[in-house]
């Protein structure tokens, strides 16, 4: 496993020495801050309306900052992640193949499973950093916000929500890594990853057009449906198992692809 860690360290050091990672960080923060301010503004308006018309006429979720600001914020971060991950995952294998460094990995005394795990760990590191940067917003709310019951946010819910967000990022990364292992071109890897993740996310909409047994099956497979609970900061075991299986199968397929080099 030492070699897997060496590969993960190498991936991270390359991410952080090229401008890519910083461009992605900036994009993530810029876009998410825009949506954060937006949901904060919505929340404020709901408060004002509540003062005029009474709380009965205002939706439940606007009673506290966690449900009123963080939950809508996470659902936008989920979408930004979907756009950002292909740019991070595309280089994992495609770049090695194009640069001919894949030959180095494949002729070193390293097993394919170590290559795949090392690369995935590196990918996890970079997506965790990207998503971790957005924790700045709930911290801001805690510092400047006040609630009758003490802290402005329920941090247990916030942390669960971030756990779900990381699981989502890890899933996108695993799918993206597998697609990157199929091609030499980073551009193709990014495009295909996006073309797989987005429809998978929106599968729920397709389900509406079908009849019952098929409908619940398709919406069960949809990322969007599975994320609903997690993105409200709920510990949804079924969804956790679902995402872990997607990660597992993507890693398995990546391993097969690397292993297949030996048979080509």
């Amino acid at each position: 496993m030492r070699t897997a860690l060496a590969i993960a360290r190498k991936e991270l050091s390359i991410y952080f020495t090229t401008p890519w990672a910083y461009a992605v960080f900036t994009a993530m923060l810029a876009v998410s801050s825009f949506f954060f301010v937006n949901s904060l503004f919505d929340f404020q308006r709901a408060q004002e309306m509540a003062r005029t018309y009474g709380w009965d006429r205002i939706p439940q979720e606007f009673r506290n900052l966690t449900d009123g600001v963080m939950v809508p914020f996470w659902s936008t971060v989920v979408m930004i992640t979907l756009f950002v991950v292909p740019f991070l995952s595309m280089r994992l294998f495609a770049e090695e193949k194009r640069n001919k460094t894949f030959e180095l990995l494949m002729t070193a005394p390293v097993r394919p499973v170590e290559i795949v795990l090392g690369k995935y760990l590196g990918g996890l590191g970079i997506i965790t950093t990207t998503l971790g940067l957005t924790i700045f917003f709930p911290v801001l709310l805690t510092v400047f916000g006040k609630a009758d019951s003490g802290s402005a946010l329920e941090w247990s819910t916030v942390l669960l929500g971030y756990g779900g967000l990381l699981l989502w990022g890890a899933t996108c990364m695993a799918v993206g890594m597998f697609i990157s292992s199929l091609t030499e071109s980073q551009m193709v890897a990014a495009l295909v990853t996006f073309a797989v993740l987005l429809p998978w996310m929106l599968l729920q909409g397709l389900a509406q057009a079908t009849e019952e047994p098929v409908r619940s099956f398709i919406s069960y497979l949809s990322f969007g449906a599975q994320l609903q609970g997690l993105m409200r900061g709920v510990l949804d075991l079924k969804a956790i198992v679902f995402f872990c299986s997607v990660i597992f199968f993507s890693l398995l397929l990546s391993h097969r692809t690397v292993e297949a080099q030996r048979w080509a």
Binding site: K10, S13, K100, T101, F102
Partner: peptide, 26 residues
């Protein structure tokens, strides 16, 4: 093994690269 095209990571320093390969070779 030295392949036809030396398998180098252009972003890494020489020291970092050689350390990485030494780790790969256990």
């Amino acid at each position: 093994y030295l392949p036809e095209t030396p398998p180098l990571y252009p972003e890494m320093t020489v020291a970092g690269y050689l350390k990485f390969v030494a780790e790969l070779k256990r």
